[in-house]
Design a binder for these strands. Structure first.
Lengths: 144, 144
DNA sequence: TCAGATTAGGTTGTATACAATTTAATCTTG
DNA sequence: CAAGATTAAATTGTATACAACCTAATCTGA
């Protein structure tokens, strides 16, 4: 057993941030095969989840839900528009606001996406108790 | 209480991946003020953690520890070299290998970094039990 | 009402991430 | 030993992220 060292706290293995960062990337990478079939990246998938649930939403509100700003969302939503999954239209009562809506094509994609969560879940070797606890702690970290 | 819907599993709130992704970004952002003082980004900080611990390490081995590939590490290490924190030198016994070493300046930075973990930890409202459990689950997700 | 403040998106610049490919060095095997 | 396989980095291309700034629209109060 090595003696305590003042530098121990700077060891990679003693960081909580690092496994969080690494696990997040790991999970995202597990989505790739399933999302490739939908022609979506992970972040685009998150945006589609929001749109499937809300139908129409402003860029600002989507940003609040996903913790993303316009610098990320603007180009991403333009790409989703190019793919034909969403429409972007200024709000008629407030031209500053851009409303994003799912198209018919985008709604069709929802059917194909139904199988995605299960495909990922089965690669995670966590039982339901662990999942619940992890979820609770993460939301606490997010200040919710 | 709304009736179960086949689309429920696609709701953002029912994804485990999302809070993981969001929490990871949140924690990284909390490092920013402390790391700005060291002139390091978060990923550069991770690289320095590895280097402080190992002194010298190949790009490949650093990549294994950090789950990063040469596409990310090569430009990052060149930046750390520009800042004077590391040296990059081909291995004399195998010219394919690039060894990265901390410089004196980089070692000096270690002293300034000693306070970083505590600055972050105190912003996380987790008790030690929660921290331990989170750590355990994350390592399980990482397959360790 | 109208000038200054605020707000919502968009743009620019920097820094990751990672897949796919390339290059040079080393290894392996007939 | 020499050709093909393998390996380690580097490079290229695409897609985030986010800070800082810009622009246009809207709001607010004297």
């Amino acid at each position: 057993m090595s003696r305590d060292n003042k530098y121990d706290r700077l060891k990679l293995e003693n960081q909580l941030c690092f496994p969080l960062y690494a696990a997040s990337k790991e999970i995202v990478s597990r989505y790739k095969p399933a999302l490739d079939e939908l022609d979506l990246t992970y972040t685009q998938y998150l945006a589609m989840l929001v749109l499937w649930e809300h139908g129409t939403i402003s860029v600002k509100d989507m940003g609040k839900l996903l913790y993303l700003d316009s610098g990320t969302l603007t180009p991403l939503l333009k790409k989703l528009e190019q793919k034909g999954y969403v429409e972007r239209r200024r709000d008629s009562s407030d031209e500053r606001v851009l409303n994003v809506s799912v198209t018919e094509t985008g709604l069709g994609l929802r059917e194909k996406a139904l199988g995605v969560p299960d495909k990922i879940a089965c690669t995670l070797e966590l039982n339901s108790e662990e999942r619940a606890f992890l979820c609770k702690i993460l939301h606490k970290l997010l200040g919710e």
